[in-house]
Write a protein that binds this DNA or RNA. Structure first.
Length: 574
DNA sequence: GCCGTTTTCGGCCCGACTGTTTTCAGTCG
């Protein structure tokens, strides 16, 4: 069982108990546990096997009750209370509650009065006007629920970070033109640079909000207004993403920015810490009794509860608060630390630019070096190189390297890892390169033990320097292949092989959690763009975002090394 | 159900918007 399967059980349990009007703190406790389980880097099953019930109870938000439920689930594969509740509510009931505008109270009301137990039935009843007239239900509420049903059909889940960021920035740019706007900041999961985004949160500092709200709700890219108030409005963009806008005064900038950036659990923790200090924290600031005392900047917010400044990417309740208390937060990697890009393609295989064009573009970015790493023969779809072409290509890189000044072009290739773990080119060819990237491009559906063996064997090859996109996932398109990532990290450490953090917004592979795992084991990460055009060299920022979410520092990054240090490490394995 | 340098019992984050309520419940973030 995956952690997400366990989490699902507790998310659902919370929902069921809420429907049954259980104690709301109990409901919240289940949700907190589900949340924490989702963000664990280690599998619950593994934790239980290693340390039993005690180890489970050490996870924040998990006590005796939930630990026992996890144990039961591991032992028997199911949880009786969960199964019982599932039978009590019809299938389709949860999607009813998840319809925007509906909540547990309304869902139960409609179920009891009208036997509505699915979203389809809800839509039908609303269209027939059967909802209005029930207690607390009028024509408007019925209309809203219908809108919610439609919205759910339209909003296609989550958006890739780059797409969401582009859209949010476009909205912010429009609002910035208004003279009332003093400051504007994109907050929420966008500011935390999560790999996928549910909705965008924009914070505006202004004294008067009326014009701003008017402009916001009438933007050309707006498709629907969800709510429109004095300090808070929400719209849905034509591309399907929801955007929330909040307007506050300047003296609340810090507390509002902090609040709208989240994550939720992190916020709650800070508010609890404020209470312990006799203060109340909201988006408007810290209050002693009813008197405002602080909140002008985020730094001030953290300082007031005794913490050093926590960068947005770390605010995920993954130990950042404890680290800030001890003054032990990492000094996160930044764009300026990156000295080169070690994974890119040219027209020799499936890229669009020449070696020289890639080198010139990289030079403009201020890089000290790049590596040209075209595909090898097995990746036929990319016109991969056989031995003969590879040798010719390496010579061509030498030629370009002599020709251009101010940047070093390293000779490399992205070599396929064959299903049996052998490399797609013989060692006699690999040894003529400065850098070898190994990658899985075929047979994704192997069983976990086979895939793990396959990759470990590649890492043991003394010419392999980097494992490209280590789990092979394409966000929203293809699941990661099954591989024991902890073993991969351990062997990467042993063999002095770096792991790639592929910067493409659809890959971001390794992900944040695994990056942190690799860091803790002392494995170097190479943040690469895997560019197929000169433009794509700019994708580096997404890799850096994810690296920061993984607590990575300059010293953890292979391509933050100067050229001579890099070369030393590349050849140290041979 | 979880949790504890104020606690093993009694707390548990805080506020905006909407609709239907005539003072507030429900939903959302």
């Amino acid at each position: 069982m995956e952690n997400s399967d366990f989490a699902k059980i507790f998310w659902d349990l919370a929902e069921f108990l809420e429907l049954k009007n259980e104690n709301r703190f109990k409901v919240a406790a289940y949700r907190k546990a589900a949340q924490n389980i989702e963000s664990l880097s280690e599998n619950l099953g593994t934790i239980y096997k290693a340390g039993g019930l005690k180890a489970l109870e050490e996870i924040p938000g998990i006590g005796q009750g939930i630990a026992t439920k996890i144990e039961k689930t591991i032992k028997s594969g199911k949880l009786d209370v969960y199964e019982k509740l599932r039978k009590e509510f019809p299938r389709g009931f949860l999607e009813l509650v998840e319809t925007p505008g509906m909540g547990p109270k309304t869902a139960m009301l409609l179920y009891k009065k009208l036997k509505i137990d699915s979203r389809a039935k809800l839509e039908k009843a609303a269209k027939e006007g059967k909802l209005q007239g029930l207690p607390g239900m009028g024509a408007k509420k019925e209309e809203n629920i219908l809108k919610g049903v439609e919205l759910k059909k339209k909003i296609s889940g989550r958006f890739l970070l780059n797409a969401a960021l582009d859209q949010a920035e476009a909205v912010a740019k429009e609002l910035e033109k208004l003279k009332e706007v003093e400051k504007i900041l994109i907050c929420g999961s966008l500011r935390r640079r999560k790999e996928t985004i549910g909705d965008a949160d924009i914070l505006v500092i202004a004294k008067r909000s009326k014009n701003i709200m008017q402009r916001f709700t009438s933007l050309p890219q707006a498709q629907r207004i969800l709510v429109k108030g004095e300090t808070k409005s929400s719209i849905v963009l034509k591309m399907g993403m929801q955007v929330d806008l909040r307007v506050v005064e300047d003296k609340s900038f810090g507390s509002a920015a902090h609040y709208f950036t989240g994550c939720k659990a992190h916020n709650i923790k800070l508010r609890e810490m404020a209470i312990k200090k006799g203060l109340k924290l909201s988006e408007y600031g810290f209050f002693k009794k009813d008197k405002w005392v602080a909140g002008r900047t985020e730094k001030e917010v953290f300082k007031t509860v005794g913490l050093t400044y926590i960068p947005p990417e770390l605010r995920e309740m993954r130990g950042e608060i404890e680290a800030a208390q001890k003054g032990k937060l990492p000094k996160l990697i930044e764009s300026k630390d990156i000295k080169g890009d070690l994974h890119m393609h040219t027209i020799e295989t499936d890229g669009s630019n020449t070696i020289e064009q890639m080198a010139q573009a990289a030079k403009k970015l201020g890089y000290e070096y790049i590596a040209i790493t075209d595909h090898t023969q097995s990746t036929r779809i990319a016109h991969g190189m056989d031995e003969k072409r590879t040798l010719k290509h390496l010579k061509e890189i030498d030629r370009v390297n002599k020709k251009i000044q101010g940047i070093r072009v390293l000779k490399g290739a992205e070599v396929d890892i064959l299903p049996d773990g052998r490399m797609d080119l013989p060692d006699s060819i690999l040894k003529q390169m400065d850098l070898v990237i190994a990658a899985v491009h075929s047979n994704f559906k192997m069983p976990e033990d086979q895939m793990t063996r396959r990759i470990l064997k590649a890492l043991e090859n003394k010419y392999v320097n980097i494992l490209a996109h280590p789990t092979g996932r394409l966000i929203g398109e293809r699941e990661a292949y099954k591989v024991d990532i902890e073993k991969v990290i351990a062997i990467a450490k042993k063999t002095k092989t770096a792991l790639e953090l592929n910067s493409h917004p659809q890959r971001l592979d390794l992900n944040d959690v695994n990056c942190r795992l690799a860091k803790d084991q002392g494995v170097l990460i190479s943040i690469n763009t895997d560019s197929h055009t000169t433009d794509q060299l700019n994708l580096m920022k997404y890799g850096i975002f994810t690296a920061r979410r993984g607590w990575l520092e300059k010293k953890n990054i292979l391509n933050a090394l100067t050229l001579d240090k890099l070369l030393k490490i590349l050849f140290a394995k041979r």
